[in-house]
């Protein structure tokens, strides 16, 4: 049976974060912690594969103990097991350190629960917002990597090959590759289901497997947490609202007003730049 790992991060819903206009700092209070929604599209795809072909789904998350909440949510939706990797030592990780730990975690998952065929990550997180952890994990585990996937077209279990649609800026690329594979999910991939009642009951009692730094014998301390993170946030600031002197344009009729605006536009470099001035009819 297929074994699918889904990487789910619990994040503050940054869409809900406001800036205090007086102090120019973030108001974090009352900002809900949610399972990163792109990751839930990865889970949904895993569940669809499970519904269709049968699969075992392991969810992994690195984060502080309250992240258990997001793992329970995954269980209620139909994931089979969940692993929470949590330790003060992991704190302060950037994408390089995170992918190192998640790479080790997935290795351990494979060793203890069976070889992994597919790893799903989200396109990106709401807080880190980089989309780098997925490729980082693929690289560490030497997996084939398929990013920005909007559709899984076909899984050939015999040939151990998978075909997906990747969404790029200029079109859709259909790619086939070998499993094991790491896929990063777009929200266009599927519609996330609601948890069924039995799932919610199962989740209520559920406790994830907890792994700390102690559980990884080969772990290199220099590669985790803040120490293992090459990038440093040196400063943050709220961009200044650009001050503009607005010139209001008004005349007696809409035609006259429009004419005034066009005159203004024609005083800029725009007509030259865009060839409006070349007299050609449009």
């Amino acid at each position: 049976m297929l074994h699918i790992v889904v990487c789910v991060k619990q994040v503050p819903d940054s869409r809900e974060i406001r800036i205090d206009p007086k102090t120019n700092t973030l108001i974090r209070q009352g900002v809900p912690a949610i399972a990163n929604f792109y990751d839930m599209h990865g889970l949904e795809e895993a569940l669809r594969i499970k519904d269709e072909k049968g699969a075992v789904i392991t969810v992994v998350c690195m984060g502080p103990p309250p992240a258990e909440k997001s793992l329970k949510e995954c269980i209620s939706l139909g994931a089979d097991r969940a692993v929470l990797v949590t330790d003060r030592g992991f704190a302060g990780a950037d994408t390089l350190a995170t992918s190192y730990v998640l790479g080790l975690t997935i290795q351990k998952v494979a060793a203890e629960f069976g070889p992994v065929d597919i790893v799903f990550c989200g396109k990106q997180t709401l807080d880190g917002d980089t989309g780098q952890v997925g490729p980082g994990i693929a690289c560490r585990l030497d997996l084939e990597q398929l990013t920005y996937v909007q559709k899984v077209e076909k899984i050939d279990q015999e040939a151990r090959r998978i075909t997906v649609h990747r969404h790029l800026e200029d079109g859709v690329e259909v790619v086939e590759t070998a499993m094991p594979v790491l896929i990063t999910a777009l929200k266009e991939m599927n519609k996330v289901r609601r948890a069924p009642l039995p799932g919610m009951i199962r989740a209520a009692k559920f406790k994830p497997v907890i792994w700390t730094t102690q559980d990884f014998p080969g772990l290199e301390r220099a590669k985790i947490g803040l120490k293992g993170s090459p990038t440093i946030v040196s400063k943050t600031w709220v961009p200044e609202q650009r001050h503009v002197d607005t010139e209001m344009i008004a005349a007696d009729t809409p035609q006259a007003t429009a004419g005034l605006l066009v005159d203004k536009l024609w005083q800029t470099e725009l007509p030259q730049r865009f060839g409006w001035a070349n007299g050609s009819e449009v």
Binding site: S14, I19, L26, D127, I232, S234, T236, W237, V238, P239
Partner: peptide, 10 residues
């Protein structure tokens, strides 16, 4: 933070 701030990374 969803475009609300800018951060400089080194």
């Amino acid at each position: 933070f969803s475009e609300k701030m800018l951060a400089t990374i080194l």
